[in-house]
């Protein structure tokens, strides 16, 4: 059976579906007997999701949007 270290080294490829069936199988076998690795897997996945949800919300604030428009009008449109 593979150990926790191997399991965590393979986690990325496992979640991307890049492991071949046999390796993925031995990983799943390890998960069945290892609650810490299950917890690790779950929190690893949640970390990725939480970070994406938190950070991809970044919008251009209205004040910056106004400045950007001004900048484009004065520095770029004059080339027209």
């Amino acid at each position: 059976m593979i150990c926790c270290k191997e399991c965590i080294d393979l986690l990325y490829s496992y979640l991307e579906g890049e492991l071949d069936g046999k390796v993925a199988g031995s990983l799943e076998e390890h998960f069945q007997d290892c609650p810490p690795c299950i917890a690790f897997l779950n929190t690893y996945k949640t970390t990725t999701r939480l970070c994406r949800e938190t950070l991809n919300q970044e919008k251009i604030p209205d004040i910056v949007q106004v400045k950007l428009k001004e900048f484009i009008d004065t520095n770029i449109k004059k080339h027209k």
């Binding site: 270290k5 690790f40 779950n42 929190t43 996945k45």
Partner: peptide, 21 residues
């Protein structure tokens, strides 16, 4: 990075907080 013992098993206590977020 995760810490392992000599045989490659996790040394730390891993809490599963994934359902609480």
């Amino acid at each position: 990075l995760p810490v392992f013992n000599g045989s490659g098993y996790q040394k730390e206590k891993i809490q599963d907080w994934s359902e609480q977020t």
